[in-house]
Design a protein around this nucleic acid. Structure first.
Lengths: 196, 196
DNA sequence: CTTCAGTTGTACTGATAAGTACAGCATAGA
DNA sequence: TCTATGCTGTACTTATCAGTACAACTGAAG
C-alpha cells in the first residue's frame, strides 16, 4: 500500500550512507538531495523536523540493526563463546561494508554528541550490557565481565579510529580477532603470558 | 622582539581549544574570532591559508606536545615499565584537561580525515612506534610488541569514545589503568586467566 | 619624535546554508 | 474513471559561511 514514488524507509537507508560519508555537519541539504535523489520537498515531507530528524531516524535504524543482528543473538541459547564470535563477525562485516564508519562513535567524538546524546548513550549501553551478559555465561565473574565488555566495545571503536587514521581497512579485522581472542581464551588455547 | 599585540603561538593555543569544542567544521570564523578574541584581520594575518592552516598549526602543536612529552620519554633510559606508566599518566592528564578530545582521533572519524590525512597518520604511527619499542624492552617479542602497541593506542582512542558517549569522564582513567595493567603484567602481578 | 613593519577592526564579496511555500504530479482505492 | 492523499521539484527567504580589502592603529627601533 501507498507505494507512490519513494518511501521513508528507503530514504533512511540512503541518508545513512550520506551521513557516513559526509558526517552530520558536512551533509548539507544539497548534498543529501543529490546523493539520495530526493528533492527538498520529499525530504521535508518525510522528515518535517529537518536534518536533525533525518539523523535521528538514521540512528534509530542503525540501533535497531545492531539490536536484532548483534545484541539479541549474543544472548541466544547455545555456546556463548560462539555467540561472541558471531558478534565479532557481524560487527566486522557491518563496518567493512559501510566505509569503516560507526555513526555513533563519530557523533560521540564530534559536536553532534550533545544533540544526539541519549541515542548515542543507549547504543553503547545496550551493546555493553549484552556482551557483559554473554561473558558471564562463559564463566567470567560479574565485575570482570563488565570490565571486559566495556574494554571490548571501546576496543572496537578504537580499532575503527586506527583503521581509518592509518588508511588500513584490513587492520580492523585483525584488531577484532585479537579482541575476540582476549575475551574467549578457551577457544584459542593461549593466555596473555605469550610473548613475541 | 615584535611583541605588538598578539603572537601566533598564543593564537594556536586558543585555536586548539576552539577546534576541540566545536570541531573543524563547527568552528566558523565568527566562532573562532569570538573565542580567541582575535579579529579576522589578525587571524588571516597569522594564517594566510585560512581555517585549514589554523587547523594544521594546531595539529602540529599537539603533535609536538606528544612527541616531547610522551613519545620521547617513552624511550628514555630506565625501567621501561615505569616509562609506560608515565605515558598513561601524561595521556590521561592531557585529555582530562582538554575536554576528553583527541583532535587526531576526532578528525580521523570525521570528514577532516582526507584533508589532514598525513598529520593524522603520522601522529598515530609515531605513538605506536614509540610504545612498540618500549614494549620490546619489557621483554615482549617484536611481533607481540607491535600488536600490543596498536591495540593499546586503539584502546586509548576507544576509551575516549566511550567516555564521551556515556558522559562519564572518570571512565577514561579506569580504562587506561586496565590497558596499562595488560601490557605491563609484571608490575601488577596478575594474568588474563583471572576471572571474576 | 619619527618611522615603519606588524597587528587589528570593519566593511564588503559571492557562495551556500537550512528551511518554507506551493503548485503540480503520481497512484491507490472507490 | 474519478478523487483524495501523499510525493515531488522549483523558487524563494533569511542567515551565515570563508575569504578579501584596506584604513587605522600599535609599539619597538632609530
Amino acid at each position: 500500500m501507498a507505494r507512490t514514488v519513494a518511501e521513508r524507509p528507503d530514504a533512511v537507508l540512503a541518508l545513512a550512507h550520506t551521513f557516513r560519508r559526509h558526517g552530520y555537519m558536512g551533509a548539507s541539504l544539497s548534498v543529501i538531495s543529490a546523493e539520495t535523489g530526493l528533492g527538498k520537498g520529499s525530504l521535508y515531507n518525510f522528515f518535517p523536523g529537518g536534518k536533525e530528524e533525518m539523523a535521528q531516524a538514521v540512528l534509530a535504524e542503525v540501533g535497531a540493526w545492531f539490536r536484532t543482528r548483534v545484541y539479541e543473538p549474543l544472548l541466544a541459547p547455545g555456546d556463548p563463546t560462539e555467540r561472541i564470535a558471531e558478534m565479532f563477525d557481524r560487527t566486522a562485516g557491518y563496518f567493512e561494508s559501510r566505509e569503516l564508519v560507526c555513526l555513533f562513535g563519530a557523533f560521540a567524538l564530534g559536536q553532534e554528541r550533545e544533540r544526539f546524546a541519549s541515542a548515542i548513550r543507549e547504543y553503547f549501553l545496550e551493546w555493553i550490557a549484552a556482551l557483559e551478559l554473554a561473558l558471564t555465561r562463559t564463566g567470567h565473574g560479574p565485575e570482570r565481565s563488565h570490565q571486559l565488555a566495556v574494554d571490548t566495545v571501546a576496543g572496537i571503536q578504537g580499532a575503527l579510529v586506527i583503521s581509518r587514521a592509518l588508511g588500513e581497512p584490513e587492520a580492523l579485522r585483525a584488531s577484532l580477532a585479537r579482541l575476540r581472542a582476549r575475551i574467549t581464551p578457551a577457544s584459542g588455547g593461549h593466555d596473555s603470558s605469550q610473548l613475541g
